[in-house]
Write a protein that binds this DNA or RNA. Structure first.
Lengths: 155, 155
DNA sequence: GATAGATAGTTTCATATGTAACTAATTTTG
DNA sequence: CAAAATTAGTTACATATGAAACTATCTATC
């Protein structure tokens, strides 16, 4: 006697995409609030500062690639950072479409203030994990990233 | 002779909050596009359907707790789902403020179509991980969740 | 049992975000 | 080397989102 097929079900709270999303949002929101409250910066502005600190004379397009932000988001974050004079723009001599971005002195100072706070927040998070667990987490995330987005490198 | 302290730096691409955010967004966007393209549903609407399927007669407030959505987002997702008749609302007899939500027949049918797709997508992701790695990932995420959001359970 | 406060859920409004159209400069192609 | 196609970045517009105000109901307190 044929049985009615069991109804498909899905438990959201064990569904990996959901769990990842909720975890990531909880972490990001906490950090975003810190940057905003202490420095008036959005998370996008912070990311732009971080890659510009790492690679002075970077272009907006390359910032987009390194931060996974689309070009409109980069444009807006850059505009906001120039508004508060944390970033300055110089025209590229080889390609007049491109502009080269630099942190200003004020921008560097703020960056230097944020870095230890950001690292401390990361440390607080991973402090529950021992060294082996930390590297295992990184390895597993790497594998997921390759499957999630095989067409492009995520980082 | 005192040295100038080394400038603090932070490499975005190894910074855990950044990596988690990028990974989670890559996964969520892929799934969101699937739900939208095939069924015209947002990810929020899908989450509401999922918990309502799991717990019929659920209230909007409880949906918010189970999905980590705020009450405005729940309200809008519910309104959209009622609009397309995937969800129906009945007044609670004990508390007239509360309403009880149910999937309609049509809603259940769509739900049944989505579940295998969602599970397949999850399977595609975790297929690179063996059973031990999968449970290790879940365990590590659990630990992070407890530190990231000690004030409330994330799931 | 009337009033004050809490709770469920919606609406309003201001801001954030993404898509597409646009400008300007560069590269390619015939 | 001129026209066509590409690229860098901005602007405009439409939609998504979140905070605060609001309505309606319920609970607690006097």
């Amino acid at each position: 006697m044929p049985e009615k097929p069991a109804a498909a079900t899905l438990c959201l709270s064990t569904f990996l995409p959901f769990r990842l999303s909720v975890l990531s949002n909880a972490i990001s929101q906490r950090i975003a609030e810190l940057y905003d409250r202490e420095f008036g910066l959005s998370i996008w502005q912070w990311r732009v500062m971080a890659v510009t600190a790492d690679t002075p004379a970077i272009s907006a397009t390359e910032i987009g690639q390194r931060t996974q932000m689309d070009k409109v988001a980069v444009s807006r974050a850059v505009a906001g950072l120039m508004e508060v004079s944390y970033l300055e723009r110089r025209a590229s001599t080889e390609d007049a479409r491109r502009s080269l971005l630099f942190l200003t002195q004020a921008g560097r100072e703020v960056y230097e203030l944020i870095v230890p706070l950001a690292l401390a927040e990361e440390e607080r998070l991973v402090a529950t994990l021992n060294a082996k667990e930390q590297s295992e987490l990184a390895r597993l995330m790497q594998k997921l990233a390759e499957v999630a987005s095989p067409e492009r490198d995520l980082w």
